[in-house]
Structures are given as C-alpha cells and as structure tokens.
Design a protein around this nucleic acid. Structure first.
Length: 817
DNA sequence: GAGGAAGCCATTTTT
DNA sequence: TGGCTTCCTC
C-alpha cells in the first residue's frame, strides 16, 4: 500500500516545500503550475485559509472554479479549515459569480434583474426561428454551425460589429451569419434573456462601460484565485484582468498539459502567456505527484513529452513503481469489452486488496464506445454508472415545468411562453402561436399580454378563449407566488397540477403508458429537490444572520447579506426562491453529478478530468478514435489529443489498462484501425502486451514517421479509417440499457458525500431513531414522509424541529446501543 | 395530431 | 447501427 497523505487541519502542515511556498506566497500575481495529482486543490484551499489567517477578510476573497461541484467541494474544505466564516467568501464558477453581479447591475445593460438564462436547446430553438425569418436555408447553414459561430465570437468578445472580416473563405454565409448574430442578440435582449456566453460577454461590457461598477468589485476583491486556468477562454481572461486590476493579487492554478477544451474556446496560451500578461509574477511548479505509481507516471511523462507547445516540467513521485501497464489488443469491440469486464471482475473479487467498484473507471474518447462495455458489464453482473447523457434537467417534463416558472419570473421570456402555451395540449396551434408572437413583436408587448387580450385581434378569434384562459392561468399562478403562502415544493406541485402537466401524464398513465410513470416520478423528484433547495437556502440565510450577529458590523456584513441573496434582502420569498431555483438548475451540468457509490464509472476522458481511480481503463486506443480522425490535419489538434491521453493515463492510481480492437463496429460500419500512436510512445519497460503488439500487426513502419513516434504503411486506412468492411450483430439498445440498469444515471444536484450512507440506511430509519447532524448535533426522528426516491424527515434537535430530505441531509445514524 | 416512413447524422461539452 | 427529426398521410 502506498502512503497517500491525508488532510491536515493545520494550514501548512505536511506540505512539501513547493506547496508550502504556494500557500504562503504574499501579494502580487502568482502562477502555480500544478501537475496531475500534485495536491492542487489542497494548495488552493490552504492558500485561502492562509490568507484569512493573515488578516484578509473572507469577503475580500473571490475563488473561481470550473464546476459547481468543485466549488462545493472547496467550500466544504474551507469550512473544515476555517469554520463558518468560510460562508462569507465568493466561491463559485465564472458564471455563477458573474451572474450575481449582473443581476445587480442588469439595468445598466438594458436588462431587468429577473432576466432568464437560456440553455443550448433554447438557443437552437431561437436561432431556428430567426433563420426562418431571415430566410436562411437550414440546409445551407446548419443551426449548429450558426450557434458555434456565435458562441465562438462571444467567447472572443466580438460583437457583430467587431467581427474581423477576412474569413470569407471559411464561411460561405459570412454576411448572413453576422446578420443572424445581430438578430440573435436583439432577440435575447427583447425577451430579457441571456445565454451562457452572454454572462461573460455582458460582464466584460459592464466593467468596460461602467468603470464605477468595476471599481466596486475590483476594490472589494483583494484576492482573486482561479483554478483550471489553462481552460479559460478569452472572455474569462478579460474578466480576470479586470477584476484583478486594482489589487493585482491574482493566483492562477493550472496545468497546460491538461488543457483539453480548446473546442469550447479555451485558450491554453493564457497560462503560457501569464508571465507577460501579469508582470512581476511569481511562478511555482508543483511537480511531485501523490496519486500514481511510478510506472504510470513515467508512462504519462513519456507520452506528453512528445508535445512541443508546452511548459517544460517533469512530474516525479515517491510512490512505489507498481504494476506494469496492461495493453490488450482485442480482436473486436466485444472481445475488448469482455476483457474489461473480466478484468474488473477479477480486480473486485480477488482475495488480496480487492478494488471496490467505485474505485474503477472506464474511459473512452467518444460516448458511442460505452455501449459494448455496458453489455459486457451487465453480463458479468458488475454495477456501473454512466456519466454524461441526458441530464435530469434536460428531460422534457422537467423543462416544461421549469418553463412555467420562467414565465412566472419573467413574462418577457418568449421561448418559455412558446414552450408552455400549448403544453399540455390545450388547442392552441402553431399558427395561432406565430400570430401571437408577431403581435407581440409589433407592439413591443409580451406574448402573454397579447394572449390576455386575444379577443381584440381578429386573427386570434378562433383560439381567443383558450389564449385568454392560458393568460389567466399564468396570472393566477403569479398571484399565488407573490402571495407567498405556500412552501416552495407545495408551490411546484401546484404549478404542475394547475398547468395540467400532472393531470396529462396521469391520463397517460391510466392508458398504461410506461413513459408516463417515469415522467411523473421525475416531477416528483423535482419536488423533493425543491424541498431540499428551500431548506438549504433557509440554512444559508440563518447562517448569515448568525454571522452578522456574532461578528457585528465590520463594514462587510450588509454587503455579504446582499451577496448571498441578491436583492432578496427582504427575505426568502417564494418569488426569490423560484428565481434562485431556476438559476441553480440552469447552471447545473452533468459535471456536477455526484459519484455513484458501489458502481464502476463509465465516462469520457473529458469528464474524467479531476477524478482519479485505483484502476483505470482506457478503451478504444485506436487511430481514428483516440486520436480522433479529425485531429490528423493539424499539429495543434494532435497535441490536444495527446493531452487528452495524458489526462486519461494520469487518472490511474495503481492499475492502468489500455486496449484497442483490430476490428471495430462503430456507427454501423466496421473498420480496422491501427493501434493508437500514443501507445507507441510509452516505453516498453512500463507496459505488458496481451493479444498483440502495441505497434499493431505490422502496419507501422517507424522510419516513415509523419507523426511523432509512428506512421502507417497502409495509407488508405489512415485517410479513411472507417472504410466499410463488414457487419456484425448489435448490442442492447441504450433505452433498454437505461431501464434495466439499476445504477442508471440519476441526476441530483449538490448531493453531499454522506448521501449514500444515509440513503443506504433509509430502511433502518424509524421514528425514534437517533441521528447526528453536522451542525445541529443529535436529534430524534419524529416523522418520515416517503417520496418516490427519497423521504422527508422531521427531526427534533433538542426542541428545534427541522425538516430535511433523507437523501440530502448530512445525517449519521447514532447507534442505538 | 397521431403514426409511420424516410432522411440525416454521429468527437469531446467545465457553464 | 440507431436515435432523432421531419415529412407525409389519414
């Protein structure tokens, strides 16, 4: 067994010299190169704690992470280190932090503070509509293409008028695209919405155009810390520059070798240019790896050394050399999948040091590769969990009800109106909806306003009564929300009932629809999310009040109070809760998914970043897949693939398994792909080959190297890696897989790590059970109200009765003895 | 507006 | 291959 160091409560205790230097560095720009497994998170959190111990007020700290999950983990650690004052820091993603600021200054930008956030689907719907009205043929220019054009330019901070000309050759429809972009921005503003990219775009504009606003924040945040700096895009870079411009205390942490999101606009030049961008900066390299065996680490080093565009560094470890890496050259994808499943079975059931399923990860370059693995795992009876895929909040019924909420919060939200006006069906057809929208545009009114006065419009006569009924419905709901007499989950239930969504699915259920059953369950689950959300908000509010009382007025408390709940200083009204809930759901992504206990993880290499496994499998290590065939054209793309390989390899703590298949059926075609060139880059001492050579079956000739390491004799294969050869049988369909797999994906926001523990013990819970809560101490269970997947617990903490969801609450069962 | 046939398209996706 | 959208028919 290796000595994997444990958390220390003292701030600089047990840190290596570089870590210590990073934690205790004083003022000024600081760049920390943090290699894989080098204790990065610990360094950031301890640095924050150190700053606080040196007299920096917690409210003067802004820490930016890339996922909500990472932010929550950081907050938890900070709370352990610092106690409740940690509550007063701004820790979050770019989007969540900037959203707070944007809501407060929405008017400066021509929005109102209740603006809504559009997700990718909404964006596409809107673009589609605009393309239609601009008469842009979707066959000539796909919505996807248009969307990525706009997104790319927003990330570059290009407004339509800034877009440099000269890209004519690249886009056939250059003028149309710019016109579309302009129309899109206008449409968003008209309906008081922003998309994800807008959050950054408008923040930069706010700070540029209103220096007095920028001044508030850049003076306030004495220290700014940014994680995963290698994956920032240009807009994020600008925001960092703006916010750190006054105190110049900027700490960025990252690893250029792990930059894998350039397709999303991330620019790893940001980290490479940091020294020029922020003069007088100090650089620290964390090169000791605490995660992997020597073998795994050396292999990773050897692979990444083939990249040219990188900062020179060499990770080392004091860990044992460990087992050799296993490479399996399978005959086809079934063979490969079976090998993976058998090996997992062996690892998890062996007598000595068995590896728990949750400590095993299977990674692949493309999601499509998961299917064969899934069926092999099922055959072996190995529980698994697939990350990514259709998220909870992307499900139709959930989006429907959220769209109702959006409409309640912001009447201007046209997309929400269009989504729900005839959902469930109430006899309002597409033609009618179009007419309503046209009137709304012409008069500058909300579609809801038009609907409410439908009888005044001759062309709406046919559906007038139904439109007006809908407008009434929404008005009633809004009144109910403003009356503030319901709890948040009650209100959700009410909206789901009154809108007709629940009745609709219940009718379907009565007809025997299986689909309806899961839809209803999901709606129910949303309600239990809502309950937990409300409880958490109340808890936050209570904590802040307590903080204010305890610390008195140190000039920060009022600010803090407003920070946490925006303009909600009047308290947690139903309206405020609804707005906050919407925001939470729109910023929630699959990356925030909590790890699943007791199950093997299946995930793309991208989503594995930041995770680690005792045993890691990387399947589909083939030319054309990993590296992907699209990356053959450019060196920079090939280098990104190599970084991806580096990320994959460095996920492994003790065991690393790589595999490729001679023949692979993918997308309905069979192909014979050569072994990934990255395998040839791993020195022979570290690897053990099974079923064939990692140089392939003779298809390589070293001398002809066109790419670092290897090249191909069979040029044809290279050019066309998916040349059709034959057909084979098929695996189980995804739909069936999802149904049958008891561990199938289930999204829940912000689940605490103790969740599984409490959930598992749900059966053990009975009235009278003694439980312990992190904050409230010991309590006695008074009541259990069962939900579909969860239960609401009423607990008596020495007189104070609290209600919490079993799946969420940080509860331990106190032994009855 | 339901249902079925036909056509399309398929890296990666931190918000 | 298969999952999704779109288009057509009744």
């Amino acid at each position: 067994m290796y000595d994997f160091p444990r958390e220390s409560t003292r701030i600089t205790d047990k840190l290596n010299p570089q870590q210590k230097e990073a934690v205790t560095y004083g003022d000024g720009p600081l760049l920390i190169f943090a290699g894989a497994g080098s204790g990065k998170t610990r360094v950031i959190t301890n640095r924050i704690a150190w700053l606080v111990s040196r007299g920096v007020h917690p409210a003067e700290i802004l820490a930016i992470t890339f996922t909500n999950k990472a932010a929550n983990e950081m907050k938890d650690r900070l709370e352990t280190l610092l106690g409740m004052v940690a509550q007063r820091m701004w820790v979050g993603t770019f989007h969540s932090m900037l959203l707070r600021i944007l809501r407060r200054h929405a008017e400066e930008l021509g929005f109102t503070p209740n603006f809504t956030i559009l997700d990718t689907d909404d964006q596409q719907t809107l673009l589609k509509q605009l393309m239609k009205s601009l008469r842009i043929d979707e066959k000539a220019l796909s919505v996807r293409e248009a969307q990525s054009f706009i997104s790319r330019h927003k990330n570059q901070l290009h407004w339509p008028e800034d877009i440099p000309s000269g890209n004519w050759s690249k886009y056939l429809y250059y003028n149309e695209l710019i016109e579309l972009y302009r129309a899109y921005l206008r449409a968003l503003k008209e309906q008081n919405s922003m998309d994800f990219d807008d959050i950054l775009l408008y923040s930069v504009r706010l700070f540029d155009d209103f220096p007095e606003v920028l001044d508030i924040y850049r003076k306030r945040f004495r220290h700014l810390l940014v994680d995963e700096y290698q994956d920032t895009n240009h807009a994020q870079y600008r925001v960092i520059q703006q916010l750190s411009g006054f105190h110049k205390n900027l700490t960025v942490v990252g690893d250029d070798d792990q930059s894998i999101y350039s397709f999303r606009g991330a620019n790893h030049e940001n980290i490479l240019n940091f020294e020029q961008d922020f003069p007088n900066c100090h650089i620290i390299k964390l090169e000791q790896n605490y995660r992997s065996t020597g073998t795994i680490l050396e292999a990773a080093n050897a692979v990444i050394a083939n990249n040219q565009a990188r900062k020179e560094k060499e990770l080392w470890t004091a860990n044992v050399k460990g087992e050799p890496i296993q490479f399996y050259r399978a005959n086809d994808q079934y063979d490969e999948a079976r090998w993976v499943a058998k090996e997992i079975k062996r690892l998890s059931t062996r007598r000595e040091n068995p590896i728990a399923p949750q400590e095993i990860g299977i990674m692949y370059r493309v999601n499509a590769l998961s299917r064969n693995i899934e069926s092999a795992l099922r055959e072996e009876g190995i529980p698994y969990h697939i990350y990514g895929g259709v998220g909870f909040y992307e499900r139709k019924e959930i989006r429907d009800i959220l769209a109702y909420l959006r409409l309640l919060i912001s009447e201007e939200d046209r997309l929400a109106f269009q989504r729900v006006v005839n959902t469930p069906r109430r006899g309002i057809g597409d033609v009618t909806i179009d007419r309503v929208m046209d009137h709304a545009t012409a008069e500058g009114k909300s579609p809801l306003d038009i609907a409410g006065r439908a009888s005044q419009y001759p062309d709406l006569a046919y559906a007038a009564s139904r439109l007006q009924a809908f407008a009434h419905l929404i008005r009633d709901m809004r009144e109910s929300m403003q009356k503030d007499a319901k709890s948040f989950p009650e209100f959700l239930r009410y909206v789901a009932e009154e809108s007709g969504l629940i009745p609709f699915w219940e009718t379907e259920l009565a007809k025997g629809s299986l689909e309806a059953e899961s839809r209803l369950q999901n709606l129910e689950e949303l309600r239990s999310d809502a309950l937990e959300f409300e409880a958490r908000q109340e808890e936050d509010m209570r904590l802040l009040t307590e903080l204010a009382e305890r610390f008195g007025d140190d000039g920060m408390n009022r600010v803090l109070f407003e920070d946490r709940h925006g303009e909600v200083a009047e308290g947690l009204t139903l309206t405020a809760l609804t707005g906050a809930f919407l925001e939470n759901t729109s910023l929630y992504t699959s990356a925030d998914e909590e790890e699943m206990g007791g199950a093997v993880s299946l995930l793309t290499v991208h989503s594995a970043k930041g995770l680690e496994f005792d045993a890691a499998f990387v399947v589909g290590m083939e030319e054309g897949i990993f590296p992907g065939f699209r990356s053959h054209n450019s060196k920079s793309e090939m280098e990104e693939e190599r970084r991806l390989a580096y990320v994959a390899i460095t996920r492994a703590r003790k065991h690393l398994y790589l595999s490729s298949a001679r023949a692979r059926l993918l997308y309905g075609r069979s192909s014979y792909n050569p072994v990934s060139q990255f395998l040839a880059e791993i020195p022979g001492d570290y690897i053990e080959e099974l079923g064939g050579s990692r140089f392939g079956d003779g298809e390589y000739l070293k001398e002809e190297a066109g790419y670092p390491g290897t090249s191909f004799v069979e040029k044809r294969q290279w050019d066309n890696p998916t040349s059709s050869v034959g057909q084979a049988g098929t695996g189980l369909s995804g739909a069936i897989a999802a149904k049958e797999n008891p561990f199938a994906k289930k999204h829940r926001p912000n689940i605490n790590k103790n969740t599984m523990k409490t959930k598992r013990n749900l059966q053990e819970l009975a009235i009278g059970t003694k439980v312990r809560h992190k904050r409230f101490g010991e309590g006695v269970l008074l009541k259990i109200e069962k939900l579909s997947h969860d239960a609401i617990l009423s607990i008596d903490f020495s007189g104070k009765i609290k209600h919490m969801t079993a799946g969420m609450a940080k509860l331990d069962i106190v032994d009855k003895e």
